[in-house]
Design a binder for these strands. Structure first.
Ligand SMILES: [Mn+2]
Ligand SMILES: [Mn+2]
Ligand SMILES: [Mn+2]
Ligand SMILES: [Mn+2]
Lengths: 220, 220
DNA sequence: ATACATTTTTAGACTAACTTAAAAAAATAT
DNA sequence: ATATTTTTTTAAGTTAGTCTAAAAATGTAT
């Protein structure tokens, strides 16, 4: 009993939603995430339940079973390792790799992921700063906060993004706010919740509320 | 109008059959190659024809249009480049890569193939000695003959295989008849059409008719 | 407690890709 | 030239995944 491309994408969506919301994934949440109708979700959810990949009770939302969670985690592992490959080896930029990895994550092969992992030097984070689960599905948890949560004069280093859109990633490239860049909060403006920050110890810049709420930093 | 995974595999099959047989691919030939029923082929062939990928006339077999041939060639390019990646970079052996490349060839991305090609150093042949078409679909044609076509005392170097099965590839590994190995025909036995050859200038070995008819060499 | 709004499910229908069985066309043999 | 065999197509049906529209269940507000 193997799992289709489509089923795999649903599992990942359910994993993502449950993690974000801390509760069972609703039909509507899944349909939004997957860009399908609610009716399609109900349909798929029955099939995933038959395959023991999720727990499903009518009108009550769904949660992943252990098998479902393993599958989802393994997919995330593959997705993020392929992203590292595309950026580190093929020199794609971080805003170009998601769509390709979305396809590559579905490649089925016994040894491929492990060999890829070794080839890449067992990276712990992907190009967007997201942790790469190990072969057993364990994530490294990093102590990180949103840039918007920094206090005046606090320092941090950019370690990840919450928003993965091309628009945001390209904006960050433009601002030279790539992963690893040190930032220090100089001033907070109550008016529009924007912040004046010192980037890389050398350049001052005002960043909007939206930007600050989508950038993860590790306090120094 | 984009082409599905399945349609792509049919195009490759049609390309392969036409090349091998030098005539339009019959419904039965395609169904054998694709492991589907003849009825499924008729069905698919209509769709491919609607998409202007093949020329199809009932009961007359099919040939690729220019668009169809371009698509097939591009797929072969991707398949073989991925095989090189798997062997050269991830250290898979040549009998393990076909199935994985069969999936990887369907990844859709604007720049991926070209970057992969560059990353691999623009290889001209895949791990089985098959030529890799360039971005315009042009193959390098190599002057090669079957080992069985060598005359007594003639020398050659192993450059490819006709049979791509795991069984044959592993047999060749066992015999140390990998690509690049020099072979010299010492003796031909009429009785069973087997041959005694000198491998790598140092070891004599009798090879069966079947082996000799599936191994390509370049005369020296 | 009832009415209204929202969410979810069901019903019915579509497409791509597949199947088997029967019919039709083409190829081969007598 | 006719009969037989082989190949191909058509017909009818299945499954995965999708949709819209309607019905049912759940949640919220007065
Ligand atoms: Mn995906
Ligand atoms: Mn990522
Ligand atoms: Mn394929
Ligand atoms: Mn090959």
């Amino acid at each position: 009993m193997d799992i289709s491309h489509t089923e795999e994408n649903y599992l990942k969506a359910i994993f993502k939603i449950s993690e974000r919301d801390g509760k069972p994934a609703s039909t509507n949440a899944i349909s939004t995430e997957m860009n399908t109708s609610a009716a399609s979700v109900t349909d798929m959810v029955k099939r995933l339940s038959d395959k023991a990949l999720i727990h499903y009770e009518r009108y009550r939302g769904v949660t992943l079973t252990e098998l479902g969670e393993e599958t989802a985690t393994h997919l995330i592992r593959k997705h993020r390792l392929w992203e590292v490959f595309l950026v580190d080896k093929l020199h794609f930029s971080w805003d170009e790799v998601h769509e390709i990895a979305e396809q590559l994550e579905h490649i089925k092969s016994a040894g491929l992921v492990e060999r890829l992992d070794e080839y890449l030097g067992f990276p712990k984070f992907d190009p967007h700063g997201d942790p790469i689960p190990d072969a057993d599905g364990n994530f490294v948890i990093r102590k990180q906060v949103l840039l918007s949560e920094l206090k005046r004069e606090e320092q941090g280093v950019v370690v990840g993004v919450q928003d993965h859109t091309t628009a945001f990633l390209q904006y960050l490239d433009r601002m030279e706010l790539v992963l690893g860049t040190p930032v220090k909060l100089l001033e907070y403006f109550d008016y529009d919740e924007s912040m004046r920050v010192l980037i890389n110890g050398e350049r001052e810049q005002v960043l909007s509320k939206k930007v600050c709420q989508n950038l993860f930093v590790q306090k120094q």
